Simulated assay, not measured.
Amino acid sequence: MSTGILNPDTLLSILAGITVGGGAALLVASLVGMPRKERTGPSPARRLVDFARRRGAIAGIAALVVLAATRWPVAAIAAAALALFWDKLFGGAKEERAAMERVEGLAAWTESLRDTMAGAVGMEQAIQASMRAASPALRPHLATVIDRLRAKTSLPIALDLFAEDLNDGSADLVIIALKNNARQQGPGLRDVLSELAATARDEADMRRRIMAQRSGTRRSVKIVVTVCVAFPVGMALFNPSYVEAYQTVQGQGVLAVVLAFFAAGLAWLRNLSSVPTPARLLITAGGAR
Rank of each mutant, 00 (worst) to 15 (best):
R102M: 01
M211P: 01
L89K: 11
I61K: 06
V74E: 01
K37A: 12
A16L: 12
V275Q: 13
E38T: 04
D168M: 02
W86D: 02
L189D: 10
D50A: 13
M211I: 07
H141P: 00
A129Y: 11
S273D: 13
A230F: 10
A260P: 01
N271P: 00
A171L: 13
A260T: 01
P278E: 15
V227H: 06
A59T: 04
P187C: 07
S215R: 14
G92P: 00
A264Y: 03
A29F: 05
L12A: 05
T248L: 06
V257L: 14
V49P: 02
V145E: 02
R183A: 10
I58D: 07
V20F: 10
D165A: 11
G251C: 09
R102W: 01
R209S: 01
R55M: 00
N180R: 08
F162Q: 12
G251P: 09
T217P: 02
L89I: 15
P276A: 06
N167V: 02
V227R: 02
D202T: 11
L255W: 09
R209Q: 03
L89R: 10
A52H: 05
V145K: 00
P8T: 13
L48P: 04
L269A: 13
V121T: 07
A264R: 03
M1F: 07
F231E: 11
G251V: 14
V257Q: 10
R190M: 08
T10S: 06
R207W: 00
P44V: 06
T10W: 09
A198G: 08
T153K: 11
K94V: 14
R289G: 06
F231T: 15
R114A: 12
L67S: 11
I223D: 02
M211W: 03
G60F: 09
M34I: 07
L15E: 00
L27V: 05
P156K: 10
A256H: 01
A24W: 03
A52G: 09
L272A: 12
T19Q: 04
I157A: 07
R280G: 09
S112A: 12
D9N: 07
D191T: 09
R39D: 06
F85K: 01
S170N: 15
R150T: 08
T40A: 10
Q128T: 15
L161N: 15
T248D: 14
I14R: 00
R183I: 07
I175A: 12
V103L: 11
A120N: 09
L159Q: 14
D202V: 04
